[in-house]
Nucleic acid binder design. Sequence first.
DNA 1: GGAATTGCCGGAAACGCTTCCGAATGGTTC
DNA 2: GAACCATTCGGAAGCGTTTCCGGCAATTCC
Lengths: 349, 349
Amino acid sequence: MAQADTQFDVPFRGRATIRDIADLAGVSIATVSRVLNDRPDVAPDTRENVLQVVRAHGFSTNRGARGLSSGRTGLIGLTLPLVADAYFGPMLSGAAEALHERDMRIVLAPTLHEHDREVSLLERLMRGTTDGAILMLPEESADELRMLQRQQFPFVVVDPREPPPEGIACVAAMHASGAKQATEHLLELGHSRIGAIAGAPRWYATEERLLGFRAALAGAGILLDPELIVYSDWRMPRGTEAAEQLLSLSDPPTAIFGFNDNVAIGALHAAGARGLSVPGDLSIVGFDDTELAMIVTPQLTSVRQPLAEMGRMGVSLLIRIIEGQRVDALRMELSTKLVVRASTGPPRT
Amino acid sequence: MAQADTQFDVPFRGRATIRDIADLAGVSIATVSRVLNDRPDVAPDTRENVLQVVRAHGFSTNRGARGLSSGRTGLIGLTLPLVADAYFGPMLSGAAEALHERDMRIVLAPTLHEHDREVSLLERLMRGTTDGAILMLPEESADELRMLQRQQFPFVVVDPREPPPEGIACVAAMHASGAKQATEHLLELGHSRIGAIAGAPRWYATEERLLGFRAALAGAGILLDPELIVYSDWRMPRGTEAAEQLLSLSDPPTAIFGFNDNVAIGALHAAGARGLSVPGDLSIVGFDDTELAMIVTPQLTSVRQPLAEMGRMGVSLLIRIIEGQRVDALRMELSTKLVVRASTGPPRT
DNA sequence: GGAATTGCCGGAAACGCTTCCGAATGGTTC
DNA sequence: GAACCATTCGGAAGCGTTTCCGGCAATTCC
């Protein structure tokens, strides 16, 4: 009977508590707690003594309990539309890494388009469990976000879907600049009739990238033909359709700018289906520079977004907010950069 | 001063507690708790009354506190080598979905190859915070896993790296069968000299797939030339190198079986670099059937692994274990199936 | 009509931790 | 040698839940 208790390999049934450690070390639980949290008022040898016991038993504090009493759980909620995705994956990964370094963890909450629930789900899901949240491409409206903020819940938006509201911490990419670079690249190659497969209408990323696209064309003195812009849902099949639509125009473009890699690859497939060679007959540029860009043939010229970095930035912003530090730059835009590969070339003359 | 308290939009500073709800509804906290947990012994109108207040304030229970008192946090730890990955992404996604349905959440712990830490990190990270864990492709040895199990910590292994130890819950794919199908497909097309780009040496998946590969060849009466097997690290660049090695043989293969999509795509690139057409000059088969298989040209023939399903299975197994239900089938193997696309064809005669 | 049963609810302990407060000790200072 | 300060530590109150136990009222049964 007593055997179960005298098993030294697995010292405690279930899990050791701070009290067990305190008893073993011959101190009070308060002292153990102080040691564990690196508080200053502990004598060096007491500290060492406690640490020894802690190490010997592989003890680690129960985060739930800590959260209850100190208000900090070390857990951060993170919502995103999709986990298994070449675009969101790296962001998530960057955030997870950055948090891991701070000994914090991510609680995943894929949104799965269930924005229908009565009250703002993100807040009800997280509060009390997490210290804050990172919202990637949130579906919540600016008003809903402001509501959340008024509840004093710390959060940051990464890659906003709508133009980011004032006063809300937010990290985005320099969409317009990237789109401008991409377009200028095509212009320099000699293209003048350039089609665009835009993203979903009214999304921040779509609008900003359109801005950059238009600006570059304007800079080259080209008047944009509205026929040359087709909206999409950011996904491959729609990219293929959009490309077909563009290529069926009476005066088809010699280059297509896809507003993300998915639709650009869709366009690539459309070109293939028509027997057009890329970049011989048609140049194609993507956006995001996901893993996919390197895999297709020809490799895709694309605008690199620092995805993982955006995740990391989101974390560091959030941490500052949680810790109540003054955050002077609530909004932050990370630079984008064109990566030229094999899918772009001069137009056939 | 008092204004902050009389803001009705945001009823409670910080967060409402179960006690607030109890007061508002004119019942005890015990009753509120019962309502919240769907306990039977509450009068219907009392229940409705409480629910009304709960809804009105968007209240949700503090999971940390619940965890403390009931021993269940509703959080599941999940470790995996990589988050942003065409292979692990869908698994993670499947697991997240399945948990979400049960109103549980995932706590992410990417392993990042830091297996060096003193004590088994996974156990110290999770215990007390989570109710159990899903270990995807864990680096832990069978002994370490058994140790964990002896601590009564509920966990399941998904996609084991080593042959799964006895008595540990585990979900895998039918590697051998899939590899056999793929090989037979090539044989039926008329290939007799088939190269294999295997995975990392000694991995369970590698060994099992080799088994299937060999079995199919043996079935066709073909003696395997050891030169035709090259190991890899599962990644694309190594796949390209391996393919080059195979194609440089004095009697090169007419088909290559890549043990995952990455190396198969690497082989595709190698073929392209040599000016070989696929499948004209060289047939290529992959494994896993990730998103990537559909994107490359030609589209890759690949063995489908039900990745998301594996994640979901892992969850349902784990839940059963946590709830103490009898689990008769601790090991479970999900079937794999060849998906024929454009990268395979008869050999040039 | 009293006793036993049932349905519903409240009080209170417990979960593992942090932190405030105050006590004890030993050393300084005048 | 008394008064004071700094250092180090323990006691105990709480954090928001769940759940056991017991109590009250309304039934039901003989």
